[in-house]
Design a protein around this nucleic acid. Structure first.
Lengths: 336, 336
DNA sequence: CTGTTAGCGCATTCAA
DNA sequence: TTGAATGCGCTAACAG
């Protein structure tokens, strides 16, 4: 591999000069510059980023820690981060940390070893306290899809409560009175907040969200959706609409209803949450809340970079809003 | 940031000793080791990977260049690579190179600057010649989902022809005689190979793949699928089954058929290719060819690592086979 | 088993 | 405008 020294030698200048023309800063004479550039091109010299990082004490890369890139939601997260990163001429380091707190901690540790100062972290297994400790040690660590009140200015999150209210209200406004909810058994914070939101909206409409109309799936995916709605159906529950914790469960619900000869939306309406790519693949296309994960991730990456190289913390929090996407999975009763 | 020197000073040993206990290699006395380890823990010392990479002249990271991680296919690719990487204690560097040859070249260049010796590259915009030149310069560069005959031992690819034949034969075996094909207008190599495969299988069954029964969509996604099938339908074509270039187009086909009151699979059967997560989200669930992208990517990453640190090239090629996944989108006429 | 020395590739003073 | 010197944090001989 050709180094800066090789270039300097061939061009008959010092390494400092080569360094200057490579980074396009500092004063370099015109002829000298073109001469050096010529040698660089001829030799195919490419600066060693590791050496640059070492000497400049910054890695110019931002790390993204997520459960698994292959899940569309996290893929979008990674992409959003990358957008921001490209603008800043940073690099993206993605670490999948699936399944355990230890995996997440290991991922962060790896990033620290890289001297990666800016990190966007989507944690699912660490508790607030652990996260606070980490945040203390790493100024450029930003949490996405999570609110930790003590360090809310380091959190980029979504107003799930309002979003949940909106989608429940949408159902109510379309004339639905018997509304079921499908959620995951291990209710995580998101699921809880959304559930609260549904309840608020339903109560505000002078309706009841009967606990017996809440179906639980072991996990929050397609199978979980099938399981949850099957439970409800097997108990003979009646409803005109079902709100699902997320799109995956909603799709499971649709499939299970279909398997039982119940049409969506003619017999039962279904809504999801997240607006994953899946929601336009299923039939009918799913009405759902759009989770602006790409924008949020892009924002988070910028925030992480900002925080990592300037101590100044704005103190403000970073809250995003989901919005309703109307598609074909809800029937309207045309009421006023 | 605490460095190896700090640890050495506090522990009262030399940096070499610290280095030895950190990397768990070389002989270190028992007491000495525990003493040093203790200081490491107390100080929270983490080795600087950039410095390690610099001095050892290898970055221990593999780069993955793909169009966009947020697309489920590429997300899976990245995940597969990561599996292999974790085993080898390497890091994953993902670069999205979307839309142009230049973007792809830039991505490779960035990886070179990182001294990232092992690269898995899914190129869509570079021609074979360009790729050969790159391969020449970078021993650890491996191409995925692509066959370049001159450097086939550096290619990890799928037998699309055989796969295409298999799915077409499946339709034939289920009694379908009028089979339409939906593909993309800008027929890329994959699409061409698959088309050839369909044709072979259909001819072998003494049937005809009439060119007028091939529908084209502007792009290879859901909208392209709708567009392509709409063309066919608007021309009054009749068929009992449609083979789609990929799952996305198949989903578009299903949606468009549904919009026109044509039932799948009762009236028309539909098959896809790739077995993306989307194929189980749609209704009916899609019968398709499974593309083992995760295993292929894992294999490719291993190959890249192998190639990058030993010149030996086995010379063998790396061909994978897709397999049929039967779901609910095909009707059988129960013929022998 | 442990320490000393040298140098990886580069950016950054400081002089000239 | 340019070059010489220094050191980033670490590993790898080598010597003891």
């Amino acid at each position: 591999m050709v180094t800066i020294k090789d270039v300097a030698r061939v061009a008959g200048v010092s390494t400092s000069t080569v360094s200057r023309v490579v980074r396009k800063q500092g004063k370099v004479g015109k002829v000298c510059r073109t001469k050096v550039q010529k040698v660089i091109d001829e030799l195919g010299y490419r600066p060693n980023i590791n050496a640059q990082a070492l000497v400049s004490k910054k890695s110019n890369s931002v790390g993204v820690v997520i459960p698994k890139v292959s899940l569309p939601f996290f893929g979008s997260l990674a992409c959003g981060a990358e957008e921001a990163i490209k603008e800043n001429n940073y690099r993206l380091l993605i670490i999948n940390a699936f399944g355990s707190e230890q995996a997440e901690l290991d991922a962060i540790d790896l990033l620290v070893q890289h001297r990666c100062g800016a990190i966007v972290f989507h944690s699912v297994h660490c508790n607030d306290e652990t996260l606070c400790e980490l945040a203390e040690k790493i100024p450029g660590l930003v949490f996405i899809n999570r609110l930790i009140s003590k360090i809310s200015h380091r959190c980029v999150w979504l107003d799930n409560n309002t979003g949940a209210q909106e989608i429940a209200r949408y159902l109510v406004n379309n004339g639905h009175k018997e509304i079921a909810v499908v959620t995951r058994k291990n209710v995580n914070p998101d699921a809880q907040v959304r559930l609260d939101g549904y309840r608020i909206a339903i109560n505000n409409a002078n309706l009841q969200l009967d606990n017996s109309l809440i179906g639980y799936g072991t996990v929050g995916d397609i199978d979980g959706g099938k399981e949850a709605i099957a439970n409800l159906l097997d108990q003979g529950k009646r409803f005109s609409a079902v709100i699902s914790y997320n799109d995956k469960m909603a799709i499971g619900v649709i499939h299970e209803l279909h398997a039982r000869g119940i049409r969506v939306p003619e017999d039962v309406s279904v809504v999801g949450y997240d607006d994953l790519i899946l929601s336009v693949a299923c039939l009918p296309e799913l009405t759902t809340m759009h989770y602006p994960i790409i924008q949020m991730a892009s924002y988070a990456a910028n925030l992480a970079i900002e925080l990592s190289d300037s101590e100044k913390s704005s103190g403000r929090t970073h809250l995003f809003m989901p919005h309703l996407v109307e598609r074909d999975s809800v029937k309207s009763f045309d009421c006023k």
